[in-house]
């Protein structure tokens, strides 16, 4: 199949994904409300920091941090783990396998296609919170704005690959989404979702920064609000790159092994 045809197929998948996301907009909105977790964390930590800063975070810093965390979470999340689990359990995956295009490309495009709608639904919430909290004081440099998309792509790929790996485990086990909950549990505290990782005890902060959780959220957030020195920025990108490559390879391997055993569950 030619490269041009491949591109057109991807575009068609994107259009379908966008149409599906629009059909599910109410569910999508409720889902976004569910992930307003950082906004409530914001209220909480801003409250705690009212009298004096917590570590090196003032009340204002918390506002910027958690609004950033909310937006970046919206832009980097996917749901392929639940789709895969369902499709493998019910055999719906068969329909995708029969099409002459890789099923993972299908998932990739439908997940990406929902992003614009997600952003459009989430932005007003973020703006409202910023206004309520008294404005935002961040001035990211042009360099930071330039590399932010890169960090976002990296974060998105990490999340997507992890979901693929865990989702593909559904080829062997019945409740892979529970494993994903385990991952999410660690993610909430280690990525900087519930509390900025730099507030963890000193030794832990250093260790946590090398884990995929931080690379998937904390790093782009800190980049966005301008808390990273050039050296930290470079290290951050290096760590993120390593995780993207390692997780993507692992995802490809799990998928291929899984496809071989597919069908034992009455597909």
């Amino acid at each position: 199949m030619s490269a041009r045809h491949q591109l057109r197929a991807l575009a068609a998948l994107w259009r379908l994904g966008f149409a599906e996301a629009s059909a599910y907009r109410v569910a999508l909105f409720v889902w976004i409300l569910t992930s307003t977790f950082p906004l409530i964390s914001l209220a909480l930590w801003a409250g705690i920091a009212r009298d004096a800063p917590v570590g090196d975070f003032t009340q204002r810093d918390f506002v910027a941090y958690f609004v950033g965390a909310f937006l970046i979470r919206q832009l980097t999340s996917s749901w392929v783990v639940w789709d895969l689990e369902r499709q493998i359990a019910t055999g719906e995956l068969s329909a995708l396998l029969l099409r002459p295009i890789h099923p993972l490309l299908h998932h990739l495009m439908t997940n990406l296609a929902a992003l614009p709608l997600r952003a459009a639904l989430a932005a007003p919430l973020a703006i409202a919170v910023l206004v309520a909290a008294g404005g935002l004081q961040i001035a990211p440099s042009s360099l930071e704005l330039l590399v932010l998309p890169l960090a976002l792509v990296g974060a998105w790929l990490i999340n997507f690959s992890v979901q693929l790996i865990i989702g593909s485990l559904a080829f062997w086990i019945t409740s892979s989404s529970a494993l994903y909950e385990l991952w999410m549990t660690c993610y909430v505290v280690l990525s900087g979702y519930a509390v900025p990782t730099s507030l963890l005890p000193a030794g832990m902060t250093t260790a946590v920064r090398y884990l995929p959780f931080h690379a998937a959220l904390g790093f782009p957030v800190e980049l966005l609000i301008g808390r990273l020195s050039p050296a930290e920025l470079l290290t951050g990108f290096a760590v993120q790159c390593c995780w993207v490559v390692a997780l993507a390879l692992a995802a490809g391997w799990t998928w291929r092994r899984g496809a071989r055993v597919y069908g034992a569950v009455g597909a």
């Binding site: 379908l16 599906e20 002459p100």
Partner: peptide, 19 residues
């Protein structure tokens, strides 16, 4: 089924045309 559940069937036809 291969048809997308919440969309009209013609959308899936169109997808298959390209794929």
């Amino acid at each position: 089924r291969q048809l997308s559940w919440d969309l009209p069937a013609v959308d899936t036809f169109e997808l298959n045309r390209v794929i």
